[in-house]
Amino acid sequence: MSYEKVLTQRTCYEGLFDTHFSMVNLDLSVPVQMLNNGTAPFKKLTRCNMGNPCGVGQKEITVVRQLIAACLSPEIRESNLIPEDVKARANVILSGCPGGNSGSYCATEGIEPIRVGVAEYITKQDGYP
Rank of each mutant, 00 (worst) to 15 (best):
C106T: 14
V56R: 04
V118T: 08
L67Q: 01
T46F: 08
V118A: 11
G55N: 07
T108G: 05
V92C: 04
V116H: 09
N36M: 05
S29R: 14
G15W: 03
G55S: 01
K5M: 06
H20F: 13
V64L: 07
P31D: 12
Y3Q: 15
P31M: 06
A70N: 03
V116Q: 13
N37Q: 13
L35N: 00
A69P: 07
K124D: 01
T46R: 14
P74H: 05
N25Y: 05
R77M: 10
F17Q: 08
C97V: 10
C71D: 01
A119T: 03
E75V: 13
M50T: 12
L81A: 15
G96V: 06
I61N: 05
L35T: 04
D126N: 03
S104H: 14
E75N: 05
V92T: 13
G15A: 04
P74Y: 05
V86K: 02
M1P: 01
P98V: 07
G117C: 10
S22H: 08
E112P: 01
E14L: 06
S104V: 06
I82L: 12
V30H: 00
C54L: 13
R47E: 14
V24M: 08
P53A: 08
C48V: 08
A90K: 05
K5Q: 10
G99W: 09
M1F: 07
I111M: 03
A107R: 10
T46H: 14
R10I: 12
G57N: 09
V6T: 07
T39A: 09
D85R: 06
N49M: 01
D126V: 00
A40F: 03
S22W: 04
Y105D: 12
Y121C: 15
L45K: 09
M34Y: 05
I61V: 10
G110T: 03
I68N: 02
G55F: 03
V30F: 02
S102R: 00
K43H: 09
